[in-house]
Amino acid sequence: MPPNHSHRDVLRKRTQIGFTYLILIVFLFIAILPFVGIVLTSFKEQRELRDSPFTLPQDWKLENYTDAWRGARFSAYFKSSIIIVIPVVVISCILATMSGFGFAMYRFPGDNLLLLLITFGLMVPFEAVIIPLWQIMGTLGIRDTYWALILPQVALSFAFGTFWMRANFKNMPADIVDAAVVDGCTIWGVLWRILFPLSRPALLSLVVLLFMWTWNEFFLILVMASGDLRTLPVGLALLRGRYASDVPVMAAGSVMVLLPVLLIYILFQRHFIRGILSGSVKA
């Protein structure tokens, strides 16, 4: 039996809700304030740095962005990031859709063992594969090409994507598949014409997650890429010379790294949160 809602209870409830909002607002500010600071700084001049980071720039200077883009070669890094992220996401999604379907719809000897092997891909850091990877790229003759940066990320994304899409297909209504099969649909048709359109939400989550992980990937690119093959995060981290000590230019570079992920995150935030939280242990 819930206790009676007396006047005092209502008042207490209101105070608690107000207090809850207070906590949330304070911690929301702590989470996004450093980001606001870096955006404001990216429009400032060097001499304005002595002011508080949260004052508005005296006049919004775009030169920091042009300096980063041309002078610090962020145009090349940006191009590289794009050239890597698109094939990784597209190829991984296709391969993961197929294997997720295969694991969800079939039982075959050794299927659990195979899944267990793929689980390693969810946990193993690139540090543990990097040297043999370097040698394999040499053997295949693709060292110092974009493929050396794309394929390893496809491989790791495939591991996550397989589990993600397998879970998705397992939740599909069995009747639909049965009906399609009765109607003479081939298995290939079941996958691409019936289940694929139904999998759009899961696939969208996969796309945004893989986009973020690939865009932010650091270790692999740091080791495998040199010069203009480097992506934005690595280019930013390895920036040397006169721009490296130029805080506003570094800030402008940081904003360039962040902005694409942030935009997609704001558009699809539910997908991000769901995906990251499921990334723990999912088998």
């Binding site: 197929m98 294997s99 295969g102 390693f120 594969v129 040297i131 491989a155």
Partner: peptide
């Protein structure tokens, strides 16, 4: 759906990439 060789066809393309660029290198390390 019980056609087992068919399952392999769905899984194989990705699996080859996974074996080449993750599993094999782990063993190498």
């Amino acid at each position: 759906f019980s056609n087992k060789s068919q399952a392999i066809l769905f899984i194989l393309p990705g699996l080859v990439i996974y074996l080449t660029f993750v599993l094999l290198p782990i063993l190498g390390t």
